[in-house]
């Protein structure tokens, strides 16, 4: 194999290798490829002293998050700009008293959902405003609030829920990926075949140019 490759030009070898790589990654994509939607449900205990935060961060994808909040008296949300990986750092800088952090990473959908309990105080919303514009949700039907927002790898969604009495808040999130598409398996096969043919053409041309010299 090595002696065959040795007689080939770098360009044609790279074309062959990339054609194989393309087929391999396409096969992996067919077997374990990305999901275009994700769902998550979480119930968090809240009360006069404890608020709940939900963070929807699209670590690699972008899309639309539909969040249903059940049982909260007040709901606010903030769109936080920047790398979601830096969000935790930004959040720490607010020096909030945080407890009970639960994260769920859905790698195949490229999104993370994190539910956090945080000490509730009159300055909470003010502190969160340091991360972005805090928008209160006034529309509510039967104690259910709905938020639909876009998230991307440079902007995350942070939802704050508070309750005046002891109880629970339930989050139901439906996340759908937008703006993703890749070659289908037959398309990949065709592109790979073109690359192999191109490699063959390069080798043929090389033989034509070098051989007459000797």
């Amino acid at each position: 194999m090595s002696s065959v490759l040795r007689r080939m030009s770098v360009a044609s070898r790279l074309l062959l290798v990339i054609a194989i790589g393309l087929l391999v990654s396409s096969a992996i994509a067919e077997l374990y490829g990305a999901k275009l939607s994700s769902e998550y449900t979480r119930t968090v205990k809240v009360g006069p002293r404890v608020a709940s935060l939900l963070v929807v961060a699209a670590i690699t994808s972008s899309g639309r998050a539909e969040v249903t909040v059940e049982g909260a008296d007040s709901v606010y949300y903030v769109k936080v700009a920047g790398d979601p990986f830096l969000l935790a750092q930004q959040f720490r800088s607010l020096r909030l008293n945080v407890s009970n952090v639960r994260s769920n990473v859905d790698l195949r959908a490229g999104v993370t959902f994190t539910a956090i309990q945080v000490e509730s105080n009159p300055f909470l919303v003010q502190a969160l405003s340091l991360l972005g514009n805090v928008i209160p949700i006034s529309e509510k039907k039967e104690n259910v609030t709905r938020i639909t927002e876009s998230v991307a790898s440079d902007s995350s969604l942070l939802i704050v829920s508070t309750k005046d009495s002891e109880g629970e808040v339930r989050y139901i999130i439906k996340y759908s990926v937008e703006g993703y598409s890749r070659l289908t398996a037959p398309e990949t096969f065709i592109v790979s075949a073109i690359m192999v043919a191109l490699a063959g053409a390069i080798e043929y041309y090389r033989r034509l140019t070098v051989k007459p010299f000797l």
Binding site: G21, L22, V24, S25, S26, A109, S153, V177
Partner: peptide, 21 residues
């Protein structure tokens, strides 16, 4: 090249990467 190309591209096909960056 085969390894890095396959691995690199597999990493972006197992998750729905929508940002070129």
């Amino acid at each position: 090249v085969l390894l890095v190309a396959s691995l690199g591209s597999a990493l972006v096909t197992i998750q729905p990467v929508t940002s070129p960056v």
